[in-house]
Amino acid sequence: MFRVLLRMEIRPGVEGEFERTWLEVGSAVTGHPANLGQWLARSEEEEGVYFIVSDWVDEERFREFEHSAGHVAHRTRLHPFRSGGSMTTMRVVYAMPAAEKAS
Rank of each mutant, 00 (worst) to 15 (best):
M96G: 13
E44G: 04
L40Q: 07
E60F: 06
A95D: 10
R20H: 09
Y50W: 07
T21P: 12
V93F: 11
A69N: 05
I52Q: 07
H79R: 12
G26T: 06
E17Q: 13
M87T: 10
F62S: 00
D58R: 04
I10V: 15
R77F: 01
G70F: 07
E59W: 04
G85L: 11
Q38I: 13
V49Y: 10
R63D: 06
V57G: 03
F18I: 09
E9G: 04
E45K: 11
R3Q: 15
D58E: 05
R75K: 07
S43M: 04
P80I: 09
E46S: 07
T89I: 09
R3W: 03
E19C: 08
L5D: 00
V53D: 08
T30M: 09
G37H: 11
W22L: 14
G70E: 13
L6T: 07
Q38W: 10
S103V: 15
T89Q: 09
W22V: 07
A34M: 09
S103W: 14
Y50H: 04
L78F: 00
I10C: 09
E45F: 13
G48Q: 03
E64C: 03
G84Y: 05
A28P: 00
M1Q: 10
A102P: 12
A98N: 09
G48D: 06
H67C: 01
A73Y: 03
P97C: 08
G84F: 05
L23D: 11
E64W: 02
F2H: 12
M96V: 14
